[in-house]
Amino acid sequence: MAPRPPFPPFDAVTAARKVQAAEDAWNTRDPERVALAYTEDSVWRNRDQHIEGRARIVDFLSAKWQRELDYALRKELWAFTDDRIAVRFQYECHDSAGQWWRSYGNELWEFTEDGLMRRREASINDLPIAADERRIHGPRPEADRGTRFPIF
């Protein structure tokens, strides 16, 4: 298992770097790539689902991105301690019927000393939106990195 810098203990710079790396990875919509950031026995709570282990994370993400089409995500550092990071996020996607959604949430992350995430807890709420209400169109442009996004 390859280490995933930056490593704890986090400071403001390394925590922000970790959050941006996660955003970048999730925006690839590549379950195998994303799962490499988690320990083999990583534990997740995602909405009402409980997921344990990297293989199940891959399965979960594969199913997610088959349902959540044209998924695009923004994450923002909320707080951090030595080996934990709190994030707020928004993503937009549409379903197979063409309905667009904006999903708002918060995540709590806990890391091992080699920078892999061993625990992820996500609370998420969904809001139907019209296509012309979208504000997230693909991965974040380089010039927008580190900028805050609106609450709603």
Rank of each mutant, 00 (worst) to 15 (best):
M1K: 15
P3R: 15
P3Q: 14
R4D: 05
P6R: 15
F10I: 03
F10M: 05
D11V: 04
D11W: 01
D11P: 02
A12I: 11
V13Q: 15
T14E: 14
T14Q: 13
A15I: 08
A15E: 06
A15L: 09
A16F: 05
V19Q: 09
V19P: 05
Q20T: 07
Q20P: 04
A21Y: 07
A21W: 06
A21H: 08
A22G: 10
D24P: 05
A25F: 09
A25H: 05
W26P: 01
N27H: 00
T28Y: 00
R29S: 11
R29H: 09
R29M: 10
R29P: 01
E32F: 03
E32W: 00
E32A: 11
R33P: 00
V34Q: 07
V34R: 00
A35C: 06
A35W: 00
Y38G: 02
V43K: 04
V43G: 03
W44F: 15
W44A: 05
W44V: 08
R45S: 13
N46Q: 13
R47W: 12
R47Y: 12
H50E: 14
H50R: 14
I51G: 08
I51S: 04
I51V: 08
R54Y: 04
A55C: 03
V58L: 08
D59S: 15
F60N: 13
F60Y: 15
L61S: 07
L61T: 06
K64I: 06
R67W: 10
Y71N: 06
A72Y: 00
R74P: 01
K75Q: 09
K75I: 00
F80L: 09
F80V: 07
T81L: 09
D82L: 00
R84I: 03
I85V: 07
A86V: 05
F89V: 03
Q90W: 02
Q90D: 02
D95E: 02
G98M: 03
G98P: 04
W101D: 09
S103Y: 08
S103G: 06
Y104H: 12
Y104I: 00
L108N: 10
W109I: 00
W109S: 00
W109A: 02
W109P: 00
F111I: 03
G115C: 13
M117T: 15
M117G: 15
R119V: 08
R120L: 02
R120H: 04
E121R: 06
E121I: 10
E121T: 07
A122E: 06
A122N: 04
S123D: 12
S123R: 08
I124V: 11
I124T: 07
N125Q: 14
N125G: 14
N125T: 14
D126N: 13
D126C: 10
P128H: 12
P128E: 12
A131W: 13
R134N: 11
H137K: 04
P139V: 05
P139Y: 08
P139C: 10
P139A: 13
R140H: 00
P141M: 10
A143D: 15
G146M: 11
F149C: 08
I151V: 15
